[in-house]
Write a protein that binds this DNA or RNA. Structure first.
Lengths: 220, 220
DNA sequence: TTTAATTTTTAGACAACTCTAAAAATATGT
DNA sequence: ACATATTTTTAGAGTTGTCTAAAAATTAAA
């Protein structure tokens, strides 16, 4: 009862969507994420249900079973470990890693991941600030908030991004924002909720479209 | 016009067989290597021929075109670089690397291989002593000979193996023979061509079945 | 050289995954 | 609540790569 590459991608997509929405995952949402037609998704959902990875009720949507969740989280663990490898050891920038990690995450070898984890010195977060699940599928909860919810006068540390599209990461690189960057909120515009910060001794303003995609942790 | 994983495996198999036999590669030989039926191979040969990777004459066998050779050699380059990574960085032993490298060799990312090559300090040989093709598909010829052809009194350095099955590599590990090990031929038995060596200040005897699978280079 | 054995190819079918088009179920608006 | 719009599922079909069984070509043997 092995898991095919395609099944793995579906499980990962379902996991990510359910993390977002906290409700039953719809066929259309999966179709959009996977970039396939809804009819193809329906076929696959039957298969995943037969194999015990999801609970599937027609027209109602799906949920991961514990078995499905563990499988999805294991793939995410591999993906994020490979991302650390690419950035720390092979000089990839954080906007270049995603496509390659997407391939590497499907390599099957428990020893490979165990040794890679040790070689990277047991990292807890990937280059985008997302936590790396441990080998038992536990994910460390972070007390991060979305930057758009920050308060005037507060100082925050950048811990991750919501959108990891190349375009967005390039924007951050251009403005020298990365994991660990500290920023202080100077002003919030009532009209469009654009925010002005002090970053690296400079002032800069970001639109809500930007601040909605950056996670920060408040510095006490 | 991309190359599927299956096509890559066929090209690699054809390359390896043609290196061995130096003649047209037969359908049955490929079927055995790939572990598929001859009829499946015939189907794939038509496809590879259509795509310009091989010249295929019905009932006569196949040969790689230059395009096919370059593709095969590129996969072998990736395979061997990954083997070096697994042994040098992730504590794999040389009998554990093959299956994982077989998966890793299909990852598509020119930057990944370029950076991995640099990270490993541009290795020229894999852990079994096989040469790593360079990025233009050139393979360094080694002046290695098969150990069974060595002469009494000569001193040789182990540079590679012919058979890289797990059983054989375990035999070598057990007797502490690896790439770089030096040995001096003390005696060759006329009857069965078994050979006695001095290795690590010890004497040991190997049957022809063993010496036929070890490559050595004569130390002048 | 003519028969027998072997190799290779063809024909037809199946599994995994995909699609389009149409039908069925659910949700929405007035 | 009833018509309309949206979502989801079914039905039928295509692609890639595999198989078995049988036919065709080649090679080996007597």
């Amino acid at each position: 009862m092995s898991v095919t590459l395609t099944e793995e991608n579906y499980l990962k997509a379902i996991y990510h969507i359910s993390q977002m929405t906290k409700t039953d995952v719809s066929t259309n949402a999966i179709a959009e994420k996977i970039d396939a037609k809804a009819s193809s998704v329906t076929d696959m959902l039957k298969k995943l249900s037969d194999k015990g990875f999801i609970t599937y009720i027609k027209y109602k949507g799906v949920n991961l079973t514990e078995k499905g969740r563990l499988t999805a989280v294991d793939i995410i663990r591999k993906h994020r470990l490979w991302e650390v490898f690419l950035v720390d050891k092979l000089n990839f920038s954080w906007d270049e890693v995603h496509d390659v990690a997407e391939q590497l995450e499907h390599i099957k070898s428990p020893k490979l991941i165990k040794e890679l984890d040790a070689f990277l010195d047991f990292p807890t977060h990937d280059p985008h600030g997302d936590p790396i699940p441990d080998k038992d599928g536990q994910i460390k909860r972070t007390d991060k908030i979305i930057l758009s919810k920050a308060e005037v006068g507060g100082t925050y540390k950048c811990v991750g991004v919501q959108d990891s599209s190349t375009d967005f990461l390039k924007y951050l690189d251009k403005h020298q924002i990365q994991i660990g960057t500290e920023l202080t909120v100077k002003d919030i515009e009532d009209f469009d909720h654009s925010m002005t910060f002090t970053i690296h001794q400079h002032n800069m303003t970001m639109s809500k479209a930007i601040t909605n995609n950056i996670y920060v942790k408040k510095l006490q």
